[in-house]
Design a protein around this nucleic acid. Sequence first.
DNA 1: GTGGTCTAGACCACA
DNA 2: GTGGTCTAGACCACG
Lengths: 123, 123, 123, 123
Amino acid sequence: MIIAISDNSDIPIYQQIRNQIVMGISDGRLAMGEQLPTVRGLAEEIGINSMTVNKAYQLLKQEGYIYTDRRNGARVRESFDGRPGLSKESEETLGRIISEARIGGMTKEDFYQLCEKYFKERK
Amino acid sequence: MIIAISDNSDIPIYQQIRNQIVMGISDGRLAMGEQLPTVRGLAEEIGINSMTVNKAYQLLKQEGYIYTDRRNGARVRESFDGRPGLSKESEETLGRIISEARIGGMTKEDFYQLCEKYFKERK
Amino acid sequence: MIIAISDNSDIPIYQQIRNQIVMGISDGRLAMGEQLPTVRGLAEEIGINSMTVNKAYQLLKQEGYIYTDRRNGARVRESFDGRPGLSKESEETLGRIISEARIGGMTKEDFYQLCEKYFKERK
Amino acid sequence: MIIAISDNSDIPIYQQIRNQIVMGISDGRLAMGEQLPTVRGLAEEIGINSMTVNKAYQLLKQEGYIYTDRRNGARVRESFDGRPGLSKESEETLGRIISEARIGGMTKEDFYQLCEKYFKERK
DNA sequence: GTGGTCTAGACCACA
DNA sequence: GTGGTCTAGACCACG
């Protein structure tokens, strides 16, 4: 899986990595239990410091998306059973986005149609 | 309209203001063309630096949600025509949230049901 | 409040800082809402890198013990209402310690007497 | 006695083994003087490197929980006399946990009730 | 002035 | 070889 970082984004690099891995898990590019690139390997690949990748992995680990096995590096969680639907922050953000969509003139149907795109994606 | 700032949020204060005004416009608490509080007035009301409020207004203006007329008052835009849509950033964020929802075990129906809540709100 | 770091401990420095602040909150040396030392200030005081203090603060923040107000630095949480009794890890560790105590020949009464010491402490 | 290793734990494997054996001794699953599995046998059983099991045994031996007789078999110590007590480390950890419990809103009685659970266990 | 982020190196424990 | 920790110094956003 390719991880592309945008230098001129105002989202911190470690967050961008975190987001792309989450999206990779969601759309199937990263399978349950699959091994992630090593911290150093990924850092080299995208040309950043390994501490930054480490921070992203720590965040993913804390959120329960991955775990680190001392023998094999980092892996995607095998199951996401007990986790609640959405984090409180993400739900708030969703509310904000829906507000923006409504002001932007989108109907509920327009919005759901947009969502479909992201539900379908499975590269 | 009451604007409440959370000190322990990770979101910068000026963005919290911006978000609340956007949501106010969306759910009808702020009417099209309605005059916003003055920068200094709002700053005093919520007990923060007026530079911060100014920054929020600048952002809203730049995003096209409000405009300032020559008497220095800020008003909500009268119409939001143009093709319906979301900003590129917000659409990306939406994609990220849908990914999180899917991993969290939400079905498309669960997600839409959650969205309904935010579409209904109209205080 | 004085924070003392042990260099020859196998507990990471950022964890030691975290533990001492937690204990400070518990025994009243740090009041609810009280401002913590600044990251740089504390780092200088105990002669370590500010990133390490930052890491400790991030951990405390994530655990809900403190929050960071952009205007005033880091502060102790005002209330700890909704938090559950003990984290799963701490409860497991407690079980392990009780096992050690029993093998060490302590009766339940011996153990509770030892606990009393830590419940009483309020410097 | 079954020893189960968790790959996604932050606790090193050799310590997990050590902890489980200590708890086994405490709750009676391992009798005083009972012979432990061989290093190689246990390593194969739980599918890890025998160096790791060896490290756990060394630690247990150093802590006085087990001893190795001249026929190379490891056995649980016959008696644990001496003045009742906890290691300095464990006592410190206990203090930390009590702090967390207090902040978490547990009363002394809540805490003792939780402890009871671990005192009762004797499989 | 505050915390947040990032870099370029380094050392260590674990397995 | 893996992740985890730490350093010394730097820049940035926020208020």
